[in-house]
């Protein structure tokens, strides 16, 4: 692989990760926390209505997890393409 091909392949995989992670980002905040909130509020977990929980707590936990998953994925990807040096 030339360095140019390597860079293109790396970038493609990176974009794929971004699409997946950002879809989750969108679904938990704008989906569960806003658009489908009333629907999810029929489900109760402890004293929380689920939609309300996502909007005020859950989405934030997912955000944190998403970034750490991204860090892991990218560190692996860097290694795979030899960009980790």
């Amino acid at each position: 692989m030339t360095s140019k091909q390597r860079a293109t392949a790396y970038w493609k995989e990176n974009i794929k990760y971004l699409c997946i992670l950002l879809s989750i980002w969108f679904l938990v905040s704008y989906g569960a926390g806003i658009v489908f909130k009333d629907l999810l509020n029929h489900i109760h977990i402890g004293g929380f209505e689920l939609g309300f929980w996502f909007a005020q707590q859950g989405a934030i936990y997912v955000f944190v997890i998403l970034i750490f998953v991204y860090i892991r994925l990218m560190n692996k990807l860097d290694k795979k393409y030899g960009y980790d040096k």
Partner: peptide, 19 residues
């Protein structure tokens, strides 16, 4: 509930920043 705009708005931006 409306307070969620700040809670999600001021944290979700970090996902964009990081990615």
């Amino acid at each position: 509930y409306d307070g969620a705009v700040y809670l999600m708005g001021w944290t979700g931006g970090y996902v964009l920043l990081a990615l």
